[in-house]
Design a protein around this nucleic acid. Structure first.
Length: 196
DNA sequence: AGCGTGATCTTT
DNA sequence: AAGATCACGCTG
């Protein structure tokens, strides 16, 4: 399948969160290592009215990447342990991003097992902190774009509507009511959560 | 259900 | 300068 171009990302954040489901995230590493994961769970974070969005009070040193062009990666560190992978949306100078919460491993499983310290297939990328560990994504990836040979996303056929679930977002306290989490129904790699 | 772990943001 | 919060994951 072909790689997603810039214009794919030029769509409202909530819509992008849904469109990314089923697409194949690819990372190339030195030594001809290719890692692939199918995106199965996402969440939308949008600008000023969404109090759970890092950028809701304006631009800071941490969140500035969220104001960049669609298709940029916003990676941040949290809870003293974990990196979170987001894909920037919305035009330049407005803030928005899609949090990638879970993937299904497609290629490079052995590498992922080593990274994660487990062989259990459904425990490799079934959470936002797990998938960055599996893919060796850290703060050095913050600000990189999905349009080169290191990081890109491959297209896949759109999913039928009935396969997509919606819920409130996981692990936030402000703006909890917004139903901005999207996931593939009955997929075993979707993160464990009280909300289904 | 409880806690580690450290950057970031808010309040004093 | 100090305190709170945090888009989590692991053990028990």
């Amino acid at each position: 399948m072909e790689r997603l171009e810039k214009q794919f990302y030029e769509t409202p954040t909530l819509e992008l969160a849904e469109k990314l489901l089923g697409k194949i995230f690819v990372r190339m590493l030195p030594g001809n290592i290719r890692l692939k994961g199918r995106i199965v769970e996402t969440e939308a974070y949008l600008g000023l009215q969404d109090e759970a969005c890092h950028a809701w009070r304006g631009k800071t040193a941490r969140n500035q990447i969220m104001f960049q062009a669609p298709g940029t990666m916003y990676v941040y560190f949290t809870y003293g342990n974990h990196y979170m992978l987001n894909i920037v949306s919305e035009p330049e100078n407005s803030a928005g991003a899609v949090l990638v919460r879970a993937m299904e491993p497609v290629e490079g499983v052995q590498f992922m097992q080593k990274q994660r310290g487990t062989d259990i297939f459904t425990n490799l990328m079934s959470g936002p902190g797990k998938l960055t560990q599996a893919l060796a994504i850290d703060g050095s990836c913050n600000g990189k774009e999905l349009f080169d040979d290191e990081f890109f996303i491959e297209n896949a056929s759109p999913l039928p509507k009935e396969m997509i679930g919606t819920s409130i977002r996981v692990g936030i306290s402000r703006s909890r009511e917004l139903p901005w989490r999207k996931f593939i129904r009955n997929n075993p790699h979707v993160s464990k959560s009280k909300v289904t």
